[in-house]
């Protein structure tokens, strides 16, 4: 006959077992599973607390950033990849991006954004802007300590704050950055090969045309009033 309350005791035995085991859990993964705050992964290991567990993985995405190919202290705007095509602004689901194109003194469109604002209180980190960008200019950052005291300006991240170098991208998302670089190099090589083939074809066509013109000129008789007329060949 089953003792009334035995089910409850069984349950309590489970919790008691978990409680006692937590003192002897070697790797502290099963019974003490609360993680510490995600310290910045680029701090040296001896400065992290003993149970620090970086929960930011190499694919974590938080808010976007603009890429530039400058190194060191070069001006990021010199090598910014964004050409202000505004595709990301159109496709962004919560409409958090605002772009203004740059025009030079004559009114001609220079392929750069003069304003590129992302309102990170609206951004939902969905990564659609990254997917639709045809120039690999915008990718996701994993920086998450972005809180500040200014409600409107502080959460409106402007172009210069969004610009990060490709090296930084390699540091936070190494595999993705490498894939992207490989793909860009491949596409560039394909484009150059195509261009070279087109140039070669054009050159060949020009040479052929020049030859033909030379032939025609040679075949035509040279009209000399003093010389007797020779029959054309």
């Amino acid at each position: 006959m089953k003792l009334l309350g035995s089910g409850i005791f069984k349950g309590m035995a489970v919790t008691l077992e978990n409680f006692v085991r937590s003192y002897f859990d070697r790797d502290r993964k099963h019974h003490l599973f609360t993680k510490e705050y995600a310290w910045k992964s680029d701090a040296p290991a001896d400065q992290l607390p003993a149970r620090a567990d970086t929960t930011v993985t190499t694919r974590s995405r938080n808010f976007p950033m603009l890429l530039h190919d400058g190194k060191g202290s070069e001006d990021p705007m010199a090598s910014i990849r964004c050409v202000a095509c505004q595709i990301c602004e159109r496709e962004c689901p919560p409409q958090c991006i605002f772009i203004e194109k740059e025009y030079d003194a004559n009114g001609k469109f220079v392929k750069r954004p003069v304003i590129f604002d992302i309102d990170i209180s609206v951004c939902m980190s969905c990564q659609i802007c990254v997917e639709v960008c045809p120039f690999d200019a915008i990718v996701m950052n994993s920086e998450f300590e972005l809180s500040n005291n200014d409600r409107f300006n502080g959460l409106l991240v402007r172009r210069d704050a969004l610009l990060k170098s490709n090296d930084y991208y390699h540091r936070i998302h190494p595999e993705e950055a490498q894939e992207r670089d490989d793909r860009m190099a491949r596409e560039k090589a394909e484009k150059e090969a195509k261009q070279a083939a087109a140039d070669a074809a054009k050159k060949k066509a020009a040479e052929l045309a020049a030859e033909k013109a030379a032939e025609l000129a040679a075949a035509k008789p040279k009209v000399d009033p003093a010389a007797p007329t020779a029959t054309p060949q």
């Binding site: 929960t55 694919r59 995405r61 980190s125 990564q127």
Partner: peptide, 24 residues
């Protein structure tokens, strides 16, 4: 999920015709 798609809950991982990217 975070390792595969980049986000814990709002994964946005499926696309029309497959998935956004392969798992690491």
């Amino acid at each position: 999920f975070e390792q595969a798609s980049g986000a814990r809950m709002m994964c946005n991982y499926f696309r029309f015709g497959g998935l956004r990217c392969d798992v690491p």
